[in-house]
Design a protein around this nucleic acid. Structure first.
Lengths: 200, 200
DNA sequence: TATTTTTGATTGACTCATCAATCAATAAAA
DNA sequence: TTTTATTGATTGATGAGTCAATCAAAAATA
């Protein structure tokens, strides 16, 4: 039943399937067969389009990252002031699409994989940098650079930490609580600078 | 060259080797052969003493957790006031032994594995609970319970977040900087409560 | 328009490697 | 001689990657 132009469709289906399977198994010890089955095609086809499992995995991180970037761009575009942009950045990280158990499990699996695959590591570093630089951009408008750096570092760490804790599913902190906690961190530190007359 | 009483020695050697290999590969996709080789024994011996790979891995998380608990107990015992105990808890998390790249990679690998193995997950939940309850014990002496809960949650998240970010080894935040950031979080929130007259 | 040719999509069957787990055999204590 | 420590060799399962073959759409040609 070969219809022409299937390539992009299949690529997407396979990447999505990889995400699902990884999210489900919570590990990169997933097989091509399983991914292919989940996508409704044969294992051979997965190889045909991606060449190797590694490559399919890379593509999968990439898609995760792209999703997050798109969400971020959208959120930032509707935020007017630097302070609003900060809130938008925090909110995006805990957005439902990012906070879904499957997605969290997949991120975690990739963090673990990053220790072995230089390619995967590079993508995660991009994520870390992006979050940091987005936070910095807004913070610099609100306080001196060195304070901004500290706050950005702290906020980023807190976001990642809340994220990873979510993966254990014990005493799960909800989306709103996570946002409130991070929001609180930023606010209280900015307030502190304000009182010290160091804010802008 | 069988000498009697080798069992405990070998068990420890194998667990230590597992930790090294996992830390090195950053994943639980490690083989019994590799672990055994690293411990200087045959794969068959590893099976002899642990029965299965899963069991050896469980034992390895356990040892990680025990190490952390011992460090924590020691650190808490020399701290007198609640505030000092808080600092001690923070410091322990970033202690050299916990902050070694291998150890970080191993923790990460186990977090990822926790999605699949209920046993591993249980151990990590124990860790999370322990950290939280230790923080709470000291915080409750310094502020109302609901504030304590928020601060404990935030501090724990920040610790985990700094930890995970360390694993990417990009723009690595040092031990001291990590401690300072977390310390800063706790201090500024306690100060805030103080100003509001809600601290104890 | 009818036909042949080329190309893209797809898979079943296969190969090769790896790995967890088993077991029987050996060697040294006790 | 019984027990403990240890391993080499083997087995059985699984999984990544390859390949040749099939099928149908599209393009080219008659």
């Amino acid at each position: 039943m070969p219809k022409v132009g299937m390539e992009p469709v299949r690529r997407k289906a396979l990447v999505d399937a990889a995400l699902r399977v990884i999210g489900d198994q919570g590990t990169l010890a997933v097989t091509m067969s399983e991914i292919a089955r989940n996508a409704g095609v044969s294992p051979a086809l997965a190889h045909h389009y991606f060449g190797s499992k590694e490559q399919l995995l890379i593509e999968t991180v990439r898609s995760l990252l792209r999703q997050l970037r798109d969400d971020t761009v959208t959120a930032l575009s509707v935020a007017a002031t630097p302070r609003e942009k900060l809130s938008a950045l925090i909110r995006v990280s805990f957005q439902a699409s990012q906070f879904a158990p499957d997605t969290i499990a997949a991120w975690l699996a990739f963090y673990s994989e990053a220790q072995r695959s230089e390619d995967v590591r590079r993508f995660l570093v991009v994520y870390a940098r992006r979050l940091r630089s987005n936070l910095m951009a807004s913070l610099k408008a609100l306080c001196p650079v060195d304070d901004a750096e500290r706050i950005a570092e702290g906020a980023a760490a807190m976001i990642d930490g809340l994220y990873i804790r979510q993966s254990l599913r014990s005493a799960p902190i909800g989306i709103e609580a996570s946002i409130a906690l991070t929001e609180d961190y930023v606010t209280s530190h900015l307030d502190q600078l304000h009182r010290q007359g160091r804010a802008i």
